[in-house]
């Protein structure tokens, strides 16, 4: 009786240790800061240089996608600026080879085939970039700040009197 009780108690707690480990593993698989080919810092470009978001993400007001700037855009300045830094030299190599930078995506809608999302609509409605992406100007490394779950989208739509009909997003 005494031993059986002990074993039951110990295995109950061990079971939950196992579950925590599993949860930790699945969390680890979905990284918030995916490794990037170049250590690009939003902090330097936004806070120090003073670029606006639209300077690089040019299509955010015009299209469903905000857009990643072309290498040409980077080279407008970096043909001359900070050419002594190793990360910029990596950039120049991509430019010379004529290959696009294989950035890893940070934000993705969890069930992307079933959701229609447009940056243009949200920017036009006056939603700040920081509402979904956090304060990018203090991020030396881009980190995902929100998980873009449906419940969150819906609460914000309701709070701002935006349509919450299913067909708004699930077209």
């Amino acid at each position: 009786m005494r031993i059986i009780g002990k074993v039951i108690i110990a295995s109950l707690f061990l079971l939950f240790v196992g579950l925590v480990v599993l949860k930790g593993y699945s969390w680890q698989q979905n990284r918030k800061t995916p490794p990037q080919p170049i250590q690009f810092s939003h902090e330097i470009h936004v806070k120090k240089v003073g670029l606006s978001c639209q300077f690089c993400h040019t299509t955010v007001e015009k299209s469903t996608f905000a857009g990643i700037p072309s290498l040409q855009k980077c080279m407008t300045c970096h043909e001359k600026v900070a050419t002594d830094r190793p990360e910029i030299q990596k950039l120049t190599r991509f430019w010379k080879d004529g290959t696009p930078i294989p950035w890893n995506r940070v934000y993705r809608i969890p069930v992307r085939n079933h959701v229609y999302f447009s940056h243009k609509r949200h920017v036009k409605a006056g939603v700040e970039c920081a509402t979904c992406h956090g304060n990018v100007e203090v991020m030396p490394v881009m980190k995902r700040q929100r998980e873009l779950q449906m419940g969150w989208c819906v609460s914000c739509h309701r709070a701002n009197n935006a349509p919450d009909d299913c067909l708004t997003c699930h077209k």
Binding site: G5, A10, F13, V17, Q145
Partner: peptide
């Protein structure tokens, strides 16, 4: 929320469960 998690949070959670397991076994005795 996923943003509040880190390796340290998981490790500490495991540690809490282990301490509680110890308490549970002592109480059982």
């Amino acid at each position: 929320p996923s943003i509040s998690l880190s390796e340290a949070v998981f490790l500490l959670a495991i540690l809490v469960i282990m301490v509680l397991a110890w308490v549970g076994l002592k109480l059982w005795r």
